[in-house]
């Protein structure tokens, strides 16, 4: 069962350039930390796939084990784990997130 969840996550993060595992949806986040990351991505104009872990307990538990990271949200860019809310916010405020997206070839609408 664990293998199926891991396989699904592997597929999700390789098929989509930017994936956010979050509580709620990008339009209706159910948690302040998830909401913060959505706002950062929107501010950068980054297209992303939101995966609502509240609607699927196996993913909620599975992504924590997959990433070896105990909390949600979790951001993946081009298959690489970037971090949770604190890391995304720190990188955004320092300008690193903008250059990180550029390095990864992810389009943003704001200048780095």
């Amino acid at each position: 069962m664990s293998d199926e969840v891991f396989e699904r996550i592997r597929r999700e993060i390789s098929d989509n350039p930017v994936v956010l595992y979050m509580k709620g949806t990008p339009v209706f986040p159910q948690c302040g930390f998830s909401s913060t990351v959505v706002q950062v991505l929107n501010r950068l104009g980054v297209q992303f796939k939101g995966v609502d872990v509240l609607s699927d307990p196996s993913i909620r538990d599975g992504v924590k084990r997959f990433s070896e990271w105990p909390t949600i949200p979790q951001l993946y860019v081009k298959g690489e784990f970037v971090g949770g809310c604190d890391i995304v916010r720190e990188m955004y405020l320092s300008g690193e997130l903008q250059s990180y997206m550029a390095d990864k070839g992810v389009a943003t609408t704001t200048a780095a």
Partner: peptide, 13 residues
Amino acid sequence: RVARHRMVNGLLA
């Protein structure tokens, strides 16, 4: 950053 967080999260498992 990720390594630092992992270190602390691991200590507080």
